[in-house]
């Protein structure tokens, strides 16, 4: 696939700047020379096959992995050197809900509230928002996957992050539950968002900018209108 770069309007300080990002696991390069700039408040959809490097990219932005080469800036702060400065502004919703199974949803969120210095009242607010207040005292291990995902959304947005890193955010959620979490992690949240999805149509509908990853390389960086069917077919070929 040839490299394509479409112009995108950047009228604010970028929330994310990646320049020549490289990340390896052992000898294998998972991300190779990835560059993209995401304006504050915009949504970047990251598309690609399994193993293309989407989750690795999110983990680097979340400060959980170090880049091996290149430059990564979040809200102007260079990672990993200034990771401490940006962590309070990041919310990660990944494959793992990051919740203790033997604790209730309320206890899990209470723990995270203490880690972020968030008032306990906020725990009740987010539980209310995802209709989990009534089930908030049940151990997480007794809840359905969809309910656990709703709690994971609560955890990710508890501290009102300015950058949401969403790895398959609607996994395990039925349409009704998807509607419940939309105000928290959707465009109306007001946060800059990086989201991955295996449903390109849904991701394109949410995005202001699309990064297609193929074998760790940026196959294209485009506004959604610039992504056509042949590009997607090549990306997932």
């Amino acid at each position: 696939m040839s490299w394509r770069r479409c112009s995108t309007r950047v009228d604010q300080l970028p929330a994310i700047e990646l320049r020549g990002l490289v990340r390896r696991f052992g000898e294998r390069a998972v991300l190779r020379e990835v560059s993209v700039t995401v304006p504050a408040g915009a949504t970047l959809a990251v598309l690609g096959r399994n193993g293309a490097g989407k989750s690795t990219l999110l983990r680097i932005l979340a400060t959980l992995l170090r880049p091996h080469a290149g430059e990564v800036r979040v809200f102007g702060e260079a990672l990993p050197r200034r990771a401490f400065a940006v962590r309070a502004h990041l919310g990660l919703l990944g494959h793992d809900p990051l919740l203790y199974r033997d604790l209730s949803g309320r206890e899990n969120l209470g723990y995270h509230a203490r880690l972020y210095g968030v008032a306990p009242r906020r725990v009740e607010d987010v539980l209310d928002a995802v209709a989990m207040r009534e089930r908030g005292d049940e151990p997480v291990r007794l809840l359905s996957r969809g309910m656990v995902q709703r709690l994971a959304v609560c955890r990710a947005v508890l501290h009102r992050p300015r950058l949401l890193l969403l790895d398959e955010p609607l996994a395990n959620l039925d349409p009704a539950a998807g509607g419940l979490v939309a105000p928290l992690i959707g465009r109306s949240s007001g946060a800059t968002r990086v989201l991955t999805s295996h449903d390109p149509a849904a991701a394109l509908a949410e995005a202001d900018l699309v990064l297609g990853l193929q074998d760790g390389r940026a196959a294209f960086v485009c506004p959604p209108a610039g992504v056509d069917q042949p590009m997607l077919e090549q990306l997932y070929a």
């Binding site: 962590r87 793992d96 809900p97 990051l98 995270h112 880690l115």
Partner: peptide
Amino acid sequence: QGGFDAFLLA
């Protein structure tokens, strides 16, 4: 149970 990641994110 992902406690490391949760802590390291904070």
